[in-house]
Amino acid sequence: MAFIDKVLFHIVHLVLWLYNLAVRTWPSWGKKHYVLRSQYNHRKRTLQRCLDESKSLHKIPRHLGLVFIEEKVSICDVANIVVCVLQLEFHTSVSTIVKVCCRNILRKLTNLISEKEKQLLEMENLNFTIETFVRKTEASTNSHNGIKDCSGKNSKLCTTQLYILEPGDGQPTLVRAAKQYCNDVIQQEEFDLNKWLQATHSFPDPELIFKFGTISSLLGYLPWQIRLTEIISYPSHHGFDYKSLLDLLHVFARTEQRFGK
């Protein structure tokens, strides 16, 4: 009997595995069809059109988190997505699990974004801020140093901020907060963790996360801030376009939160 159970278990396992494989690969088939279709529907993207489209969404996240959990992360594709997102005016944070030099990413992204902005958008310059948090050595007084880099000239918009996070910005930030808390308690000062994190990261909690990649986990992305965050997965960030972004934002706009009630 035990043998039959085991065989049955293996068969069930195999069937489910094949089913899962089909489900996982399906979105990419759908996407290919879409790419073909969209070539006929191409319209020039103007600033006005982007703003109209963002207004048509009845709910827009104030802060969108982009999490890339893939073996190969293409800075060029990330820049493409960021440019798409920048048009819709909200905070964005980008996190990858690939340990890369933050400054490198920052420089490359800044250059790529300005380039793509001109190439792809064919519209007035957008203004955006890129911030990254680079931990300094213990000898320095501040544990964080925000690097700001403004791009774009004479622009009318100055609303979107882009934060680049690295693995040390999740749980280790809370450890630093705990140390600070203990010091403040010793000094009998009031300590508000939310305020402390706001001062450190200066962004609101992300309301939406786009997780790129087939691995279904957030792997330590901002543990304190994702209490109510909607997590939407997409198989890969390669070739993710403006239309896909709008589709996912429409999915988000349909969600309803009850806040425990």
Binding site: S216, S217, L219, Y221, W224, R227, L228, T229, I231
Partner: peptide, 17 residues
């Protein structure tokens, strides 16, 4: 629903289904 609703946020180095 696709959110964690304040459940095991610190411990989310796990597979989400």
């Amino acid at each position: 629903e696709v959110r964690l609703s304040d459940f095991l946020l610190w411990q989310h180095y796990s597979v989400l289904a």
